[in-house]
Amino acid sequence: MSDKMINIEILRYNPESDEKPSYGKFEVPYLEEWSMLDALEYIKDELDSTLAYRWSCRMAVCGSCGMVINGTPKLGCETFLRDYKGTIKVEPLANFPIERDLVVDAEDFINKLESVKPYIINAMEKPVEEGVTKQTPKELSLYKQFSSCINCMLCYSACPQMGINPLFTGPAVIALGHRYNLDTRDDGYDERTEVIQGKNGVWSCTFVGYCSEVCPKNVDPAAAINQNKLQGAQDWALSFLMPRKGGK
């Protein structure tokens, strides 16, 4: 083990014994290549086995280890201890109820995710005999960026609107709905409109843009939201010319 040490302060909360969350301090010896996740594993194995946190892939693919590190929403697995000095403060994702320690209750997020129907809705199922559905690279490039979301919820922690209006659909969910709306194989636009274009959809966003900054996969949810505002404004104007379009 190396002789380099770092102090880590973790916001701890055990609903069975604690009235409110408080910080627990740990002194962790670390190696050059250690991530925050490695440090949490060390703490759980060697210092305090009651520490609770979510993790799985260790390579920024699964989206499980989102946490707030020194005030910034980040993935623990791609945050390296060598980039910090002194004490590092680790907290659970903001704007979510804490379940225990660094584990947050994501149920509300999952409900919102389901409400936007993040899957291909095909109005006309194609018979198998007709062969595969073709999509050009250009058509793919329309939505590819938005399909990279790993549901890590960092954008929900970053978004000030989530704190002010918890009913806001939120960046990741809107970006994923947008991803399927842009897919040429999908016919579900009308089914997603109410969630995306409603008062708690894109119109709750005041374009702070921090969601796109913290996104570990460069999804740019703020762009998805703004593209939907533009689309919504066009639909709005069209609804006067063709009143039946929105009446389904």
Binding site: T193, K229, K248
Partner: peptide, 17 residues
């Protein structure tokens, strides 16, 4: 689809312009 007709899209369009 009642939500579709709220005024925010118009205000946002003017804001964008």
């Amino acid at each position: 689809m009642s939500q579709k007709r709220h005024i925010e899209p118009l205000l946002w369009s003017l804001f964008g312009a």
